[in-house]
Amino acid sequence: MTVAARVIACLDVTGGRVVKGVNFVDLRDAGDPVALAAAYDRAGIDELVFLDITASSDERDTMVDVVSRVADQVSIPFAVGGGLRSVDDARTMLHAGADKVAFNTAAVRRPELVAEAAASVGSQSVVASIDARRVTPDAPDEVRAAATSGFHLTTRGGRVAEAIDLVDWCRRMQELGAGEILLNSMDRDGTKAGFDVEMTRAVTDVVTIPVIASGGAGSAEHLAEAIVEADASAVLAASIFHFGEVGVDEAKDAMATAGIPVRRT
């Protein structure tokens, strides 16, 4: 396999501005999404993900505008997610210049949406975005009963535990036509303690579509670990990049040292 492991920067956007907080609270402002995207492109990032974290319907036009301005500034692929509910939403974002759309809560509510979107815009543009957690002893009975892999889905930014097993769900997303899985650990999100390798591995073991590891990146070594140990196709991070704690080059150096093929610019 010669394809380079992708290093992805995630930009959480609300009201047209990029923010990133610890476990989605205490948001800190890290700037203009268009300027950041162009800077990341220059720095050699392989791909970008924009998550609309407010996703109220009146913010949608703001996000479409951000997407079209980003598309004019960067020559690398990028995905858009957050609050997308329909095939029309997907088409709007792709038409504005996004390469992929990520469905999260809407897919949990109605999984057929993934199949409809894949039929309309192609699997390569449909990302199943998943917020998952380890099952804990105090989880509701139905969640513990459902989560036979030891990991379950969450919605509403991790606040609602769903009685859906993570591994079953990922298999289903692939069957329905998702072209990629963006797997975010809500246990690790914002902790900088490293990716949940065991959880990521549980998914990469059963699907053939690419899996992006997300949640917990705190160092360049963590990024390499998710590729080598968990067999992820890509790694996603936010604050360590936004605040310059880890440079894109530094990340790729660590990955190359671990024997992982990377793209150099």
Binding site: R6, S123, S233
Partner: peptide, 13 residues
Amino acid sequence: TDDVTVPHMGWDV
């Protein structure tokens, strides 16, 4: 064939 990750997605030589 499904011996590898499909789609082939990413930066390749």
